[in-house]
């Protein structure tokens, strides 16, 4: 593999970007600590932020000087990953509006479709959705009525 393809590989670029983000997080923290009124609340975040900046910088520099094609998102389909996460987020935002159980169905459906690598058939549709309904209702009942969690 030639050197230029390594420096431009997703693993190399991603690692650099993430190291840089950690440095940024440290800098933002240092800035935030300037506004604290109590010296006791400043000491620890400042110390930790400096450690974070130093470590993340070392990580950035060594990786920049010795590019390797390591890390990356690997194989696997993106639409499934995104579907799973997006439906879970939608559930959160829908929850206060439509209630917990209907919102939960969105996440469940998203997860089911995302994780369904076999061929759909009438029987597995029935079994999977049926067991899904049982799982959700069971959990809902357990939390809401046994543990008295005020689910919306």
């Amino acid at each position: 593999m030639s050197n230029s393809s390594v420096t431009r590989s997703s693993g190399q670029l991603g690692s650099l970007i993430i190291s840089a983000l950690f440095v940024l997080a440290g800098v933002i923290t240092l800035y935030d600590t300037l506004g604290y009124t109590d010296r006791d609340s400043q000491v620890f975040p400042q110390t930790v932020a400096i450690i974070l900046i130093i470590c993340a910088s070392i990580s950035f520099v060594t990786r920049f000087l010795n590019p390797i094609d390591e890390g990356g998102f690997g194989r696997g389909s993106w639409w499934r990953r995104i579907l799973l996460i997006v439906t879970m987020f939608i559930t959160c935002f829908a929850m206060p509006v439509v209630g917990f159980l209907p919102a939960g169905v969105i996440a469940f459906a998203g997860g089911l479709i995302a994780a369904m690598h076999d061929r759909w058939s009438i029987s597995n549709i029935l079994v999977y959705w049926g067991s899904g309904a049982v799982v959700m209702i069971a959990f809902y009942t357990l939390f809401k009525f046994v543990l008295h969690v005020p689910l919306p």
Partner: peptide, 10 residues
């Protein structure tokens, strides 16, 4: 897996 993932997610 198609049931495990959404159940754990829920």
């Amino acid at each position: 897996k198609a049931v495990l993932v959404p159940a754990v997610g829920f």
